[in-house]
Amino acid sequence: MHAPLAPTTHLPIGSDADLAWVRQQVRKTATDLGFGLIQQTKLVTATSELARNTLVHGGGGHVEVTPLRAGHVCGLRLSFVDAGPGIRDLDLAMTDGYTSGGGLGLGLSGAKRLVQELIVDSCPGRGTTVTVTDWASGLPAPRTGTR
């Protein structure tokens, strides 16, 4: 595991005002860590998708924001945690266009394309944790999903 650069910050996700606050805090942290404008924009957009999932599908929760360092490279780990119903079929949930809640079905699959690493840990009935890790390395994000 990579060494934390600074203590983890917990931010609540319980309303759409919280979504706006989480986006602002993630942008500020990414800027401080040296993320470029495009990478910041992608990361904050992914944050918005995942935080909204936490709010809408998970019934609210929180995000843990942890600045990381590996050698000279700074990174950011974001864990979106809820205690909601969980995801029954993860493969289906990761499919472009699949939605359980009236959105466009791009939240999870789209967010995965915007960051370097996205891991979903979900247990039906016990909640969902989505963890995103992004490094301010200037390396392009790997194209894991279908375009």
Partner: peptide
Amino acid sequence: MRPAVAITLVELGL
């Protein structure tokens, strides 16, 4: 629309 927003929307699939 800002260029970074356009790039992100395309990658998002929107």
